[in-house]
Structures are given as C-alpha cells and as structure tokens.
Design a binder for these strands. Structure first.
Lengths: 159, 159
DNA sequence: CAAATATTTGAATAAATATTCAATATTTTC
DNA sequence: GAAAATATTGAATATTTATTCAAATATTTG
C-alpha cells in the first residue's frame, strides 16, 4: 500500500525541472523556484522516500552513436494467452527496448532501436519469425521524430 | 559535420552504466570497469565534447504520481503533406509526449500519457478531433508495460 | 485567536567528488 | 624496435554541494 501522497505545486515543479536536467544543484533550483536550497533538499528527500524519484539517468544522443533506426512493431499473437511466453522471448532481443500489452488491433506493441536497416531486417526476419506464437507483425519505421518530451506533471486529482 | 568518433569498449561501457544510473561517482564507476577514476573523467569529458552525452534526467515513477494510462495512437492524415501543421498542433497537447512520422499504415504515431481514461477520452475526442487534417486515429491502450530499457550500445560499425 | 505544529530560511559545516598532474605504462609510428 | 606520442594511474587538492540546524515564518487546530 503506497503512503498517502501529499504533493504540492512546488513538488511538481521540482520534478518537472529535474526531469529536464537533474544536474542542477539544490541552491540553483531553489533560486529558480523562489525557495531556499534547504526547502529543495527537504522536498527531494520526501520524494525519494515516497519512491517517486528513482535516481538519474544519462541522456545520450543515440543518433550520434550510430543508432539511427527507430521502429514500432505491432504484433499479432496466435492466442492472446501466449503473451507471457512471447514477451519472455522478445526480452532476449536487445534491440527491442520496450514492450507493451495493448488493447486494439495488435496484441502487443514493441519499440526497436537499430543501427541500420540491415540490423532491423535481421531482427524482424530472423529473430521475430523464430518466436512461436507470433502470427504476424506490422512494422512502422520512424522517418523523423517530431518531438519527445516529458509529460507535464501537476496535482489535479493526483495521488 | 560531426567529429569523427573513435569510441572504444570502455566508452560504451561508461555510457551503458550511466544510462542506468548517472549518480555513480567517477571513482566507483572506475572500480566497476577496472580503470582509474581519472580515466573515467577523461572519457566522460570526451563524450561530452563529442555531444554524445547530454546531461542527466531525473527518473520518476509516473504511476506513483497518478499517470496511469499510457496509449499509442496511429494517426491517418487526409494528405501526408499536412504532417508539419498537424505536428505543430499535436505539440500543443501536453499529454502527447512523443510524435513520430512513420512508414506503413499510419502517417504518424503518437504516444500519450494521461491520469485516467477520462483524460484520455477528452484528448482523443475533444482535442484530436478538432485538428484539421487528421482523417482518423486508432488507439492502443497499454494494459501492461512488460519492459522498458536502454538499447545495448557497442562499437560494431559505429560512428 | 492563541497555542501547537509544521515548514522554510540561510548560513555554517561536513562530506563527497571532480579536477589536476607528475610519474608510469601503453600504443603508435617510422 | 627505438623514439615519439598517447593514455592511464592514483594520490593530492580544490571545489562543489549536500547536509545540518537554530531561528523565523507560516499554517493548522481546538
């Protein structure tokens, strides 16, 4: 059972700012939000205790590293009861970075990151086809990412 | 023109580790990767100069904040030339956190994060429908996220 | 509205950690 | 394979920044 959350505007502002840039110091963030560094400290400690804040991650330019190809894959299963076993197999493919069980047309929805179309072709054709229970797949290759951002967090009806 | 990258195994190991946890100190990361803290320092400086490393982001438990509903939206446009104007309109909707221009069935592919089904309904029905140029949409609500992780980076045919 | 409780402030301090750098080791070049 | 160039080491240092805490403020409660 989660602790009853009682977050105010400042908590959400801290989260929003640090989702963009976690390197900012408590003092500087305090200046930005018109409170003292001590208050930022107390709030972040609270957010960590609540389990809302779960550390920081390095932001990396994957394109610059050569990971140019992003695609989405809609997956049709032979039987939806096969979800767990197929998910387990998909997890073994490192190029697949995300998998969701979805309503609608597809049984599951995957995101894949590759270095080039050859690698994508290999995963789709050689690896996915081997997995028992997948009926067929539909691939949507991203030609351009228009934007990717964080959700705007606030306290309307939260917690 | 990007600087010719010359990244070795250690660079990729540093990136991989810090994509999971950016709070680790140079000394500790050095221990983990069997080099000195000084070497980690030099490598990270290089990665920053290359523009590969772009700061750190706070990792937040959105579910705990009440953002329970994730959905994917396939969007059909009346004419694919309308992409830019529609993208601009979609960017104004804060619940839409990501938009890709894709090959395949749909013209564009969006991801949306909401607090509840009511909010999702509102965005789909009241906001998306208002946008000129959208023919129709297909929504896939995530019932479960099986996994979400970073791609495995390495130097095969990189940079 | 007074008392009790909780929160914020801001400066002092402690702690952590990035940075520096001479010595050493490794790799590359000719 | 010797010389030159480059990279690593690891300890010393400087710097940053989290942490602490008493006083001041603000908020809640009966």
């Amino acid at each position: 059972m989660p602790v009853k959350l009682n977050l105010d505007k400042l908590d959400f502002q801290i989260i929003q700012e640090m989702m963009e840039d976690a390197e900012i110091s408590y003092a500087d963030l305090g200046k930005k939000l018109f409170v003292s560094g001590g208050t930022i400290h107390v709030r972040i400690k609270k957010l960590q205790e609540y389990g809302i804040v779960k550390g920081t991650r390095l932001s990396v330019d994957l394109k610059a590293l050569g990971y140019d190809v992003i695609a989405f894959i809609g997956i049709f299963l032979e039987k939806s009861s096969l979800y767990d076993t197929v998910a387990k197999e998909l997890k073994k493919i490192p190029e697949i970075v995300r998998l969701n069980y979805t309503t609608g047309n597809y049984s599951m929805f995957a995101e894949i990151v590759c270095k080039d179309i050859q690698q994508l072709r290999f995963v789709l054709h050689d690896e996915l086809q081997k997995i028992k229970g997948i009926e067929r797949t539909e691939t949507f290759i991203s030609l351009e990412e228009s934007f990717a951002r964080n959700v705007l967090v606030n306290d309307t009806a939260a917690g």
